[in-house]
Design a protein around this nucleic acid. Structure first.
Lengths: 126, 126
DNA sequence: TTCGTTGCAAACATTTTGCAGTTTC
DNA sequence: GAAACTGCAAAATGTTTGCAACGAA
């Protein structure tokens, strides 16, 4: 992990991500912090999202309409993405699933580090 | 499906995708067709990839380093993405997996249309 | 004082689009 | 001839980066 000082804005970004189940993108975070941090810049949001991801503090869970979506809940779970409105919803699967995926061997892969399971469809608001 | 005429270039893009297991992006396709179609333009590749995807002829299987990667094998299967070189490898899972995922219900989802399972790690060439 | 952090704007990379000319049917 | 298709270049989009000022330790 890269050396880091304390940063009030990074902290705010992280806490905002902890407080929501929106799985937001950089711009949503920027807009939601602007009132508390009027001099915040979008570049800072991007920089800190990257830092937090390198940290392991947050994860990128999906790319929806070309935008990276982030989640501060790092315990393993899956997601549902609405094809119409782009909403991202948490999906918690039973143990049988992780048991199943842990057995998977991929020809051509030296080492499997992680996996991502994303469901797509229409959400109940669309 | 939008009305379509025959197009030699679209056909070539589709056949190239059928012939490879590279899961290429637009630029790879462009570079590989340039010699046969010297007047091909990258815009045409993008336009036709979108049309072919709307058709259901091809699928976007992953976004690797910001690039959409396509596959003309539309029968359900998963993928492995190398975190270092970006290589995309087919992963065929046994039936028990689809049986499992078909049972999944997502709270907040009206209808599940598809899902995508992607493994990440290091490939045997990295 | 050192080095991480930031705002700002410019740069970047991928993808989309407007237009005028070409091809398909 | 109508409508789809294309090359080209410009535009749009999301993200990254260089730099000088600022903040933390």
């Amino acid at each position: 992990m890269r050396t880091q000082n304390y940063s009030r804005k990074r902290q705010a970004i992280y806490e905002l991500l902890l407080s929501t189940r929106e799985h937001p993108n950089a711009e949503w975070i920027y807009n939601n912090l602007k009132s508390d941090y009027p001099d915040l810049s979008l570049g800072t949001v991007y920089r800190n999202l990257k830092l937090l991801e390198e940290n392991g503090s947050i994860k990128s869970v999906a790319v929806v309409n070309g935008c990276e979506r982030y989640d501060a809940m790092t315990s393993p779970h899956s997601h549902f993405v609405c094809n119409k409105c782009g909403r991202v919803i948490d999906v918690f699967l039973k143990n049988e699933f992780s048991e199943f995926t842990e057995k998977v061997r991929v020809e051509g892969a030296k080492e499997i580090e992680s996996f991502s399971l994303i469901y797509y469809g229409l959400c109940d608001k669309c």
